[in-house]
Design a protein around this nucleic acid. Structure first.
Lengths: 210, 210
DNA sequence: ACGCCATCTGTCGTTCACTGACAGATTTTC
DNA sequence: GAAAATCTGTCAGTGAACGACAGATGGCGT
């Protein structure tokens, strides 16, 4: 009754969990940023938040999982953005805009942008994070394919095309991110992704040299 | 001196190493097949070959690496097959035939086929192997992109298209393999891959439902 | 306000992947 | 055959991850 009703919709316990989770992520990124991923131990992260390392593993399945938590979040945002696209757009075009919109949103916020860059650094320089990131992406491919199938109005188990589109789109995004980190740090990722998807739209069975 | 010259081109030490390596792979697959990947310890693999576990790690960087050694070999074979394709073929078409040819070769040999199926089982059911496999594939993407660039007669660092083609082709192959394992076990992987690449050739920016 | 129950957390102990250092064995080379 | 290079085993250690148990804490009915 009365003032006990929380302003938001969740109990005290749930809020505490969210705080712990957020604190673990922040502490982890602090340490990853200064000492590097492999040099940082789970114990150090846990001590910084004053919880036991056992508790860390109740929030995250592995040390890698905390590093890619932002990437996972971005996938969910792409799903949202995809549903917001007009239904008459061809699938790759819709995916292109959805991805670019999400990336632009991150570029506009200073904090988001630097955290995003930090994650990409981890993915690029720590094999374990890279591996986990790739694994997570393929996990998400099912969901993405399902949504693409809905857009196409076809059955996602019978028709191989939605899975193919989802995988290819994910590959294009990875190429764009990698180009950004390695070759074109001055460009915006969103622009690189935009161009990569544009190439997909145009078809990629290029003729041989001549 | 005299009869010390080896029949083949390598010394005794080198042959011994090859034998140990092969024995480790075989012992590992035996154990993975019966006990599963995570239930098998490196000690068990090493004991089966009568070497120390320390030696195992001098041959393989990780327990996962021994599981995907065949996949790595297949990549090298695709490179070979790609060079054998006529130079007038468009890139995706050439990749399609190269991949399908390699897969068909594995399907024809009984032993190769079952070992291939075993590896795919490991990749599908053991997250750690899956992650390492994906990581290895992205490592190989550089080399594949380089070869695609040569075929296109363009510069692989300036032009983003070769990287895109390589990534997309790899994605298509992964989709085909996955479809084989999960939905169409009765089909041949080579046929599924063939169809996936055919879709790529035709373009994938499908219209929305209507 | 009180207590019951579900859930969360810490502690302890264990397994196992992986690595550096050193010493001994073996192959190669001269 | 001796010296140099390479391979291997042993030892010791780190750190990730998990199972089990006990204590703490928030949720909830009365």
């Amino acid at each position: 009754m009365s003032p006990n009703t929380t302003v938001e919709g969740m109990g005290l316990r749930e809020r505490k969990k969210q705080r712990t989770r957020k604190a673990l992520i922040e502490a982890a990124f602090d340490l990853f940023g200064t000492k590097g991923f492999e040099a940082t131990t789970v114990d150090e992260i846990s001590e910084a938040v004053e919880v036991s390392s056992r508790t860390f593993f109740r929030y995250f399945g592995s040390k890698e999982d905390v590093a890619i938590s932002i990437q996972l979040q971005q996938f969910l945002e792409v799903y949202q953005a995809l549903e917001a696209r007009p239904t008459h757009e061809p699938v790759v075009t819709a995916l292109r805009h959805a991805v670019v919109d999400v990336l632009r949103a991150y570029e506009e916020d200073e904090a988001d942008a630097s955290q995003f860059a930090c994650v990409m650094d981890l993915v690029q320089h720590s094999p374990a994070v890279m591996a986990r990131s790739l694994e997570m992406c393929t996990e998400q491919l099912d969901e993405l394919a399902r949504r693409v199938a809905v857009r196409m109005g076809v059955d996602p188990v019978t028709d191989p095309r939605p899975k193919l589109v989802a995988s290819v789109a994910s590959a294009a995004l990875q190429v764009a991110v990698r180009a950004w980190r390695e070759d074109e740090p001055d460009e915006k990722v969103s622009d690189l992704a935009d161009r990569a998807f544009a190439l997909l739209e145009a078809g990629i069975n290029y003729p041989a040299a001549g």
